[in-house]
Amino acid sequence: MDRRGPGRRARLGAACMNGLPEPRRPPPHDGPVVTPSPAPGGGEMAAAPEIRFTRGLAGTGHALPILALGAWFKHAACLLEHDRARFGPNLGDLDNADACRGVEPAAEALLAQADGGVRAVAHDLHPDFHSTRVAAALAARLGVPAIGVQHHHAHVAAVLAEHGRFDARPVLGLALDGVGLGTDGEAWGGELLWVAGARFMRL
């Protein structure tokens, strides 16, 4: 139980789930929003876009494959394995029933493509996001860990991955991405982080 009272929890939930106050909310989607659905005639969904890394991830010490579910805004799941990151469809913001209904099928479609099953399911730290609940349920069903990832740390890590940096050499990362739940239970905003692989420190 949060001893600081339900009011604080409600305020934190509102901040993390609804973004910053209206004048500073993130802009509308600037990319296509796709709801996963079977192809005509009951076929499979279209192939997911993917990023291939110049150097494979084998031998880096990472337990792969990993399924990662997105957070609240512009949700998309991702399957990380071998030398590639394969993405599910952009479902848009998880503020409506249609988008939320698409989270589990999109994740299941990526799971079906994993080579030998996944070793973990990653998700945002916020416990009330629909994607977090789906991730926890999937992890429990598969018998693998559900790993909570701090929102701004995830952004810095994504940039490192984009540049093929999968080691633990430290970097400074500036993530100006609005609100995300911090490791201290508070709402964090734009953050300067010291990041060394899975470890990070808020500066």
Rank of each mutant, 00 (worst) to 15 (best):
M1R: 10
A140G: 09
D124P: 08
G92M: 02
G116R: 05
R3S: 12
W188Q: 12
W194C: 08
D30M: 12
D184M: 00
H75P: 01
V149L: 13
R9S: 15
M1L: 13
L125H: 09
L80A: 15
E44M: 10
P38S: 13
A175S: 14
N96I: 00
D167K: 10
D95V: 02
Q150S: 10
P6T: 11
N18D: 13
V195D: 09
L193P: 10
H82E: 15
Q150E: 15
E108F: 05
L192E: 12
A68Y: 01
P38V: 03
A99M: 10
E186F: 08
H130W: 13
H153L: 13
P145W: 00
V179N: 13
P65M: 09
G5C: 03
M201D: 15
P6Q: 04
L110G: 05
G148L: 05
R9P: 06
P65S: 09
L193W: 07
S131K: 00
C100S: 05
A135W: 02
P36M: 06
G180N: 08
R199V: 09
G197M: 08
L192Y: 02
P127L: 08
L138P: 00
A85G: 11
P6N: 12
C16L: 14
V118S: 02
G182W: 00
A107T: 01
A15P: 10
L176V: 14
A136S: 09
L20P: 04
L110Q: 13
A137R: 07
H152W: 04
R133N: 14
L110F: 06
P40N: 07
G117N: 06
A46K: 04
L79H: 00
C78F: 05
L181Q: 06
H155G: 11
A168D: 15
L203Q: 13
D93N: 13
H82T: 13
A196W: 08
A157T: 08
I147W: 01
A154R: 08
A161C: 11
A112L: 13
C100A: 11
C16M: 09
L193E: 03
H126V: 03
H163G: 06
E22G: 04
A137P: 03
A158N: 07
V144M: 01
G59Y: 04
R141W: 02
G56Q: 06
F53A: 06
A39I: 04
M17G: 12
V103C: 02
I147S: 01
G59A: 10
E186C: 08
C16S: 03
V179R: 12
G43H: 07
D115F: 01
S37A: 14
P36H: 02
P28Q: 11
A161V: 01
E44G: 11
V195G: 07
G190F: 05
H62P: 08
G148V: 01
A146M: 02
Q150N: 06
H62V: 15
P105F: 03
H62S: 10
R25L: 14
A39C: 09
P145Q: 06
W188N: 07
